[in-house]
Amino acid sequence: MSVPSANPQIKGWCPGAHRPMMSGDGLVVRVRPFRAELDRDQTLGLCALAQRFGNGTLDLTSRANLQIRGVAGEDHAALLAELDGLGLIDSDPRVEGHRNILIDPDWRHGDLTDRLYGAVLATLPDLPDLPEKMGIALDAGRGAHLRAGSADFRFEISDEGGLILRADGAARGRPVSEDTAMDALREMAAWFISTGGRDHGRMARHLAQVALPGDWQVIAPCSAAAEFTIGPANGGSILGAAFGKIDAAALSVLMQETGAPALRLMLGRMFWLRGGTAPCLTQEFVHSPDDPILRAHACPGAPYCPQATVATRQIAGRLAAQVSGSLHVSGCAKGCAFPRAADVTLVGREGAFDLVLNGAPWEEPSQGGLTPAQITNLEEVI
């Protein structure tokens, strides 16, 4: 058996439905539900597909998408046909690969956010060939809820209530109207490509090297709103998924027992049951906003990812209560589960862990070569 490299391969793209990614347990097939919402039939259907074609679980990603893991190569075409029948994928693989759209979870049918989403869908085929990790945030609701989400082009609201388009990494944006928003998006995407943005991959990294036009940096977005939290919410309930792992059978039972007509996916690896009765307290989901597991992040790790050299989630679950801030246990230096700085980061390398304090997985560790036994008590290590 080969040992994964200490320098993991960064593919520059994320798995999709048409273009899955091979992992240690089979293909990873990512589903990007339109408007981050699944109705009851779509939810139950997707749960059934995860059990039929995958390993019985769904991964809720950091961008509020869902992944079916463990799919056999010979089953991919049949799975695609089923997903298409549920209305969960694009017919055009190129569009599907670039449909990284974050949407305010409190959107309402016919509101500005909903209308912008439809406009973005119509505009995607016209945009230049952007790096597949790039995304768009539609944070144009009654509060700014997507600041922590990974996006490169951000539609937001100013303190005066006007719509702006802000490049990620810039403090201010350019004023737009609903009628001019898509033209502004096309212009910014074209600028990114023409100024060498593909070499940097993401907008914020590009802006660290290339100056954005001054007239695109004139209005600041409004202050971030209070975050959504687990518990009752607008006639429904918000629940969490530890490390984003959802047991498909348990979710199916949850939808049937609560009678919820729809489910919305959220940042923070949370999901919102829209209506229905209050869910029963079960260990399959996170029911308390104070649960320390919500501050912990971990990828599937070994043996599920071929680039990981360590198991991750069991360790993260054991250590979560020991860290007052954020904890990230990463199978390798890519940091897929939380690609940013955490208060405490443990990075797998050649079967052991490097410790990074107040940093990202790819940054210089303060200690290296720690075994799982050595990190049972973090106070003794930090």
Rank of each mutant, 00 (worst) to 15 (best):
E187Q: 11
A190R: 10
A190D: 11
A190V: 08
A190M: 07
W191P: 00
W191R: 02
F192A: 01
I193T: 04
T195L: 06
G196K: 12
G196A: 07
G196M: 12
G197C: 05
G197E: 09
G197V: 11
R198T: 12
H200F: 15
H200D: 11
G201Q: 08
R202P: 00
R202H: 04
M203A: 00
M203T: 02
M203K: 02
M203V: 05
A204D: 11
A204Y: 05
R205K: 10
R205Q: 07
L207Q: 01
L207E: 04
L207N: 00
A208E: 10
Q209A: 13
Q209S: 08
A211I: 05
A211C: 07
A211Q: 15
A211W: 10
P213Y: 14
G214W: 00
G214M: 05
D215H: 13
W216L: 03
W216G: 01
W216C: 01
Q217K: 02
V218H: 02
V218S: 07
A220F: 05
P221M: 09
P221H: 08
S223I: 14
A224E: 14
A225V: 06
A226Q: 15
E227D: 13
F228M: 14
F228W: 15
F228I: 10
T229L: 04
T229R: 13
G231Q: 14
G231T: 13
P232L: 12
P232K: 14
P232F: 15
N234T: 07
G235M: 12
G235E: 08
G236T: 12
L239K: 03
G240P: 07
G240Q: 12
F243C: 08
F243N: 05
G244D: 09
I246W: 04
I246F: 09
D247I: 08
D247G: 07
D247P: 02
A248G: 03
A248N: 02
A249E: 13
A250E: 15
A250P: 01
A250L: 08
L251W: 05
L251R: 08
S252K: 04
V253I: 11
L254V: 09
M255H: 03
M255G: 02
T258S: 06
T258L: 11
G259I: 14
A260K: 03
P261C: 04
P261R: 04
P261A: 06
A262P: 04
L263V: 09
L263F: 03
L263T: 03
L263I: 09
L265H: 03
L265K: 02
M266F: 00
G268C: 11
G268Y: 09
G268E: 15
W272D: 01
W272A: 01
R274P: 02
G275W: 06
G275Q: 05
G276S: 09
G276N: 07
G276M: 12
T277Q: 15
T277L: 13
A278C: 10
P279E: 14
C280T: 15
C280N: 12
T282M: 03
T282Y: 06
T282E: 15
Q283A: 13
E284P: 00
E284D: 14
F285P: 01
F285Q: 11
V286Y: 03
V286M: 10
H287W: 12
P289E: 13
P289D: 11
D290R: 10
D290I: 11
